[in-house]
Design a protein around this nucleic acid. Structure first.
Lengths: 205, 205
DNA sequence: TCACTTGCTGACCCACGAGTCATTAACTAT
DNA sequence: ATAGTTAATGACTCGTGGGTCAGCAAGTGA
C-alpha cells in the first residue's frame, strides 16, 4: 500500500505556512524570498499557498500578526500576575523578558517591520496599536505604580518610557548587523535599566 | 540653433546618479526601486547609468559609501577642533550633531543598511570600519579625556559608549515608522545624555 | 462500490525589470 | 572642415517569479 501523495489537512496548513514564511523571510528578507520557496519549506505546493493567502503581501501581513501579538501578550500577562514592587519588577521579570528578545526569532520581525513597514501603512498601524503602544502603556503602568508607592520620584523618565525600550531595539539591530562586534547585550540592557532606576530613585541633582 | 539633445559631462554624472539613487531608495527601498527610475531622476538614460555602475548592487554600495563617510568625518572634525571640556562638548557640539540625524537624509541610509546589510557582508564590513567603529572610538576619546581631567569617575558607561548612540538609532527608526506617534526626539536624546553625564559625574550610589 | 465534494498539485502564463548593444551625436584635435 | 573619439541613447533580450487554473486524488456518505 503506497503512501498517499498528500494528505488533506485544512486546519494545520495556515500555521505551517506562516512558520515556513517566517523562517524564509528571516534568512533572505521579504523581497528576495520566493513564494515557491516558502511553499517548499512548508511541504506544500505553491497553488495551495495561494488558496490560504491571496497574495505574497497578504502572507507577509499574516506572519507579522500571528507571531508578534502573542509575544506582547506574554509581557502584559507577566505584569498582571505580578505583586512585586516596581523596582523588583523592572529588575526581575521585565529584565528577563527583554533580555530574551535580541537573538530570538522575534528580532527578525523587527527587521522586517523596518524594511517593509513604510510600504504597508495599515501594517504599521496594526503594529503600533497591538505591539508598540501596548508595550509603552504597560511600562507606564509600572512606572506610575512606582510613584504611587513612593519608590520613585516623578521625572523626565515618566514621560519617556521609550528610554526602557531603546537598548532592546539597539541590541536587536546591532546583533543583526554586527554580530561579531556586538557588545554583551544583556549587560547593555541591564546598564540602562540601572541608570534609569537610579535616576528615578535618586536625589535631586 | 536647437538645444543639443544631451551634453557630455563625464565628471558630474556619478554624483548626480548617486544622489538620484539615494532619493529613490529613500522613497521605495532598494528592491522596489527600478534602475530605470533612478536614471530618469538623474536625467539620464539607463544605458549611461550602466557605464558608470556595473550593476544595481554596485550602485547601491556607491550610494552608501559616498554619503555616509562624509558625515562621520564631520563628527571627528568637530572633536579635533574643540577645546571644550568633555561635558561641555557632549552637551554642546556632540548633542547638536546627533540631534540633526533623525529626519535627515542620513536616516534613510540606516534603514537601507538594516534592510540590505545582511545580504552584503562586504558592505557591512565597510560600514563597521568606516562609520560605526570610528564613531565609537570618537566617543571613547571624549570619555577618556573626561576621566583624565577628573570630570568623570570611571564606570560602566566607559565600556559601553553605545549608550550614547542608542537614542539616536532609536529616534531614527521610530520617526521613520511611527512619525505620527514619535516622541520629541531632541528631548529623548537630551534626556539620555543628561542621564549618562549625571551618572558619570555622580556620587557612588 | 460509486458518485460527489474539495484539498491539493504543478505546468503554465505573462508582466516586469536588470542588463546589453548597435547606433547616434556631442566634443576634440589637427 | 573633417576624421576620430567616446559620452550618451533607447529599443531590445531574457531570466525570473508572482499568480492562475484545469485536472487529480484523498476523504465522505449512502
Amino acid at each position: 500500500m503506497p503512501e498517499p501523495r498528500f494528505r488533506r489537512r485544512k486546519e494545520d496548513r495556515p500555521q505551517e505556512i506562516t512558520e515556513a514564511a517566517l523562517a524564509a523571510f528571516a534568512e533572505k528578507g521579504y523581497a528576495a524570498t520566493k513564494v515557491d520557496e516558502v511553499a517548499k519549506r512548508a511541504g506544500v505546493s505553491k497553488g495551495l499557498l495561494y488558496l490560504y493567502f491571496k497574495t505574497k503581501e497578504d502572507l507577509f501581513k499574516a506572519v507579522i500578526r500571528s507571531f508578534v501579538v502573542p509575544k506582547i501578550d506574554e509581557l502584559t500577562a507577566i505584569i498582571d500576575s505580578s505583586e512585586l514592587t516596581s523596582e523588583e519588577f523592572l529588575r526581575g521579570p521585565f529584565l528577563d523578558f527583554v533580555k530574551t528578545l535580541p537573538g530570538s526569532p522575534i528580532s527578525v520581525l523587527v527587521r522586517l517591520m523596518i524594511s517593509e513597514g513604510p510600504k504597508h501603512p495599515d501594517l504599521l498601524q496594526f503594529y503600533w496599536e497591538n505591539v508598540v503602544s501596548r508595550g509603552l502603556v504597560a511600562l507606564n503602568v509600572i512606572l506610575e505604580r512606582g510613584i504611587e508607592t513612593g519608590e520613585f520620584r516623578r521625572c523626565v523618565v515618566h514621560d519617556l518610557p521609550h528610554l526602557f525600550v531603546m537598548p532592546v531595539l539597539f541590541s536587536v539591530i546591532f546583533k543583526l548587523l554586527f554580530e561579531k562586534h556586538c557588545p554583551d547585550t544583556d549587560q547593555l540592557i541591564e546598564a540602562q535599566i540601572d541608570l534609569l532606576i537610579a535616576h528615578m530613585k535618586g536625589e535631586i541633582e
